[in-house]
Amino acid sequence: MKSGNLTVSDARLKKAFKNLQQITNDGSTSKKIKEATEDAKLTTGTINKYYMDLNKAEVKLSTGKTVTCRVLQLFCNELILKYTPEGDYGYDETNGAGYIIPRTRIECAVLPTRADTGHTDYFLIGYFNSNDVPDPVPAPSMGNVKLSYVSAVDEYLVQFGADGFNVITNQLNQYTGVNSEYKQPVDDLATNETLEKEYYTRAEVDELLENLKNELKGETGQ
């Protein structure tokens, strides 16, 4: 029988809605809908292993599940940005690639692909810090961008923007400059060339002192 030949009555509509309600209220159906909804949400986790050469990471999700994620790339093709966290090195014979077990906790955000793609792929889409305490690393001034590497004893950074360009390799050896004009504070220190031109050598100082002594002796008649 074709649907066009059916007579739509109140009884038929009520029965259809009742059947639909029974299906949606079924325990197994509700569970599947809830699971699908949860799986589609943005998930957080921490990195267990970081595969530098594969651009992948093994992540333990906040749900307790462990998944392998593809690291989302900022660039592609000929422009590649690589990152390797500090930690202990290991080698995965199955994948034929090395990995790093981070020394510090690295929190990340993970998002799965849709189920209708045929298989579930997870993507690591970024990092975050759940600590609400102010960051000890100072932020750049307004209109500037700073990329820092923070060690136990120092901060190494590249900063540029409204204030010009600034590279600090460490606190004792800073390169600063605007545009293509660079200056290093140690450039102001005396060199062999400046010492020879602007300052007396030790031998010259000794000679001057000796001459002064002789002059003083002559004046006093001693």
Rank of each mutant, 00 (worst) to 15 (best):
T29M: 15
V67A: 05
G64L: 09
P140R: 00
G4V: 08
P134I: 02
Y149E: 10
F128Q: 07
D154W: 01
L209T: 02
N144T: 01
T169I: 13
L6I: 12
V133G: 02
T7L: 14
I125M: 13
Q184W: 08
K197F: 06
E35V: 13
L61P: 01
E204R: 11
D154P: 06
Q22K: 15
L212Y: 09
Q171N: 14
V158I: 14
N211D: 13
V67S: 08
M1N: 09
A57G: 06
A36D: 11
S30D: 07
K183H: 11
P140T: 01
K2I: 07
L172K: 13
Y50T: 03
V145T: 12
L79A: 13
T24E: 13
N25Y: 11
C76A: 15
E78H: 09
F17R: 12
C76G: 15
Y127A: 11
Y99T: 05
I168M: 12
K60G: 11
R103C: 10
E219H: 05
E58K: 07
Q22P: 02
T191D: 06
T94E: 15
D206L: 13
C69E: 07
P112G: 04
I101F: 04
K31R: 10
K18D: 14
T37Y: 12
C76E: 14
V133K: 07
Q184M: 11
D88K: 15
V158H: 01
P85A: 03
S130N: 13
G118I: 01
T120F: 03
A57T: 04
L172S: 15
L81D: 13
S28Q: 13
E107L: 06
I47Y: 01
K197M: 11
T113A: 08
V133T: 10
E38Q: 06
D39E: 12
G177A: 08
Y199W: 07
K60F: 11
F75I: 00
N214V: 08
Q22M: 13
Y83M: 14
N77I: 00
A36P: 02
T46Y: 12
T201G: 13
E204V: 04
N170E: 05
C76P: 06
K2Y: 08
L208N: 11
A203W: 03
A162N: 10
P136K: 05
L42V: 12
D163V: 03
T191E: 05
V59Q: 06
N95R: 09
L212Q: 10
T68C: 03
S148Q: 04
P140M: 00
T191S: 15
V153W: 04
E219G: 00
L111T: 06
Y182S: 08
G164W: 02
M142C: 07
Y99F: 15
I168H: 01
T29E: 12
G98V: 05
G98C: 09
S148C: 14
A57S: 14
S141C: 07
N19G: 05
K183S: 08
T29P: 00
S62M: 05
I23N: 11
G87T: 08
P112F: 03
R12V: 10
G221F: 03
G218S: 14
L20P: 00
D26N: 14
D88C: 09
V145W: 03
I106Q: 11
G221E: 00
T66H: 02
A36R: 10
V178E: 09
Y99R: 01
D135P: 02
L124E: 02
Q73I: 02
K15T: 10
L216Y: 08
Y200Q: 11
T44H: 09
F165I: 08
S28K: 11
Q184F: 10
L13N: 07
S30R: 15
